[in-house]
């Protein structure tokens, strides 16, 4: 950073794009199209209240409750809405299940469509050109870079998200988790396991 000295005579100048954003905000606020307090609320929600813990709760419930699981795989949107998770952009959420025969992973080749209500804001790598191009072309190699090696005979299916449809992977329940509560199970469900680039943690 160029400005680190305490004797600086004026306020620290934000980076150029930040000033462009402030310019837009000023225009939109003056026109009454946005409310600065509502912006703070949106940021707070995505920074603090929405994240992979939501998706983990859904997965843990599906592992514990066969009826919930069946309903989730049938039509996830109303089921997760029932838990308070619904898309702000009106998209449908589709849950796909990993099985011994098929592993699933999610990408958005269009831009970075992602199930925000369940996983929050996507990580940088999900938004990178490298992941977006290679997940489709060489999924096994990408999985290997994430440390995921699949059993021989397990096929890989890649699901391409859109603005209308966002996917959540339902990973396989790890062995040795019989008798765990939903909260204990949720703690095993990682963000990457719900994107398909990871597997759930195994209980210690």
């Amino acid at each position: 950073m160029p400005h680190d000295d305490h004797d600086h005579p004026h306020a620290l100048l934000p980076p150029e794009p930040a000033l462009r954003v402030k310019a837009l905000e000023t225009i939109l606020t003056r026109k009454g199209l946005i409310d600065p307090a509502a912006l703070d609320e949106i940021i707070d929600t995505y920074q603090n209240r929405i994240g992979p813990q939501n998706g983990a709760r859904v997965v843990a419930k599906a592992w514990s409750d066969p009826e919930f699981r069946a309903a989730l795989l049938e039509d996830a949107t109303p089921v997760v809405a029932g838990l308070g998770y619904y898309g702000r952009q009106g998209e449908h959420i589709v849950v796909v299940e990993n099985t011994p025969a098929q592993h699933n992973m999610v990408v958005c080749t269009l831009c970075s469509c992602y199930p925000w209500p369940l996983l929050g804001i996507p990580p940088g790598w999900y938004k990178s050109d490298a992941y977006r191009a290679r997940a489709v072309r060489e999924p096994r190699k990408v999985l290997a870079e994430f440390g995921v090696t699949l059993a021989e005979g397990t096929s890989v299916r890649v699901w391409d998200s859109t603005a209308e449809i966002r996917y959540l992977i339902l990973p396989m329940r790890p062995e040795g988790t019989e008798g765990l509560t939903e909260d204990e199970l949720a703690a095993l469900v990682t963000r990457d396991s719900m994107i398909g680039t990871g597997l759930p943690k195994v209980p210690a």
């Binding site: 934000p14 980076p15 794009p17 930040a18 954003v21 402030k22 837009l24 905000e25 939109l28 199209l33 946005i34 409310d35 509502a38 912006l39 703070d40 949106i42 940021i43 995505y46 920074q47 994240g51 702000r88 952009q89 929050g120 804001i121 990580p123 940088g124």
Partner: peptide, 22 residues
């Protein structure tokens, strides 16, 4: 990693979501 690496990333995201909701 942090949800938003820079404050302006968060601001532009929020402006866009707010405009869409409106």
């Amino acid at each position: 990693e942090p949800v938003f690496a820079e404050p302006w990333h968060a601001q532009i995201f929020a402006v866009t979501v707010a405009l869409n909701e409106a």
